[in-house]
Amino acid sequence: MLNYIWIGLILIGLFVAVGNDIIDEVQNPYRNGEPFVSTVLLKKAPSGIRQTWEGDLVAPPDYFNGFYGTQRTQEPIRQPAVISKSADGTASLTMNITDASPAWWREMAKSAGSKERLLGRVVEFSVSEDQTSARVQVVFESIRFVKLKAVTQAALDYAAIAVNIALGLIGIMALWLGMMKVAEEAGLLQVLTRILTPVTKRLFPDVPPDHPAVGAIIMNIAANMLGLSNAATPLGLKAMEELNKLNPKVGTATNAMVTFLAINTGGLILLPATAIAVRAAAGSSNPGIIIGTSIVGAGCATIAGIAASKLLQRLPRYKKAMEV
């Protein structure tokens, strides 16, 4: 199943990206090859050998929206730009794209040759008599295959993120595994396990009630409910390792593992701290109002997950996968 979901995500992603880029080729939303007409308020005239003008490129919002086809901006455009003329008479325009730039140009710069700049070929450039402004017609560099570029970038970025996440886990993982080992040797986990045996026996009938896996599972669920995700993940991984020791068929998920994961993906948490923090930051009058609703939502998810794992494990196809 994970096979199909995985290849599905990738294939759908690639097909949609190609489709979007083909639509872009037809509709040309970036106006590749068409001249953008505007005025440059000059600040710095050319000096000496280098033929460069610096100034602000200005355009009314109506023209900008008309040129790019939709309501892209409300504000008048005022964008710093540099125009430089080379020896053979051709001129080029460079704009440094910042947060102050129009959103659509920021979008275009993302897929341009350089992420912080948008380049253009100047087709017409005439400086006014008083040297304070210039009329300019500029064809910006062609923006194409936006989605395919984004998809490639995402694949590379996320691969790096995955490694960073894993490396970041090394420290806390070691810390909690060390703590767990002490608790195990001291017999603390066994005490915890014995208290909760009536519950765990029903949830994980395949796991002996005094097995170390049960202790790790209890610790993981407790950490999850308290919102201690730094502790929950290492404890959960420890629980998976212990559960795997009971696995008759290495490389295949056992019933207990799936039930355990169902509890984890349900994400039952007594204090959804992240959501509350975001609400408070957004100026909510009562950030904690979602505690109750989140518990209901996550409670339903957890119950549905446990029930689904118990029912699905009886299906012949999943039973067969477990046969040694």
């Binding site: 199943m1 994970l2 979901i5 993940t233 959960g236 991984l237 998976m240 390792e241 559960l243 795997n244 696995n247 290495v250 490389g251 295949t252 998920a253 593992m257 799936v258 994961l261 169902a262 984890n264 993906t265 997950g305 689904a308 794992s309 699905l312 494990q313 299906l315 999943y318 996968a321 477990m322």
Partner: peptide
């Protein structure tokens, strides 16, 4: 992450359950 630590490749009913 969880299946990765124990090198599980056949996830059985874990995905539909999730």
């Amino acid at each position: 992450v969880y299946f990765g630590t124990v090198s599980i490749k056949n996830t059985r009913h874990a995905v539909p359950t999730g």
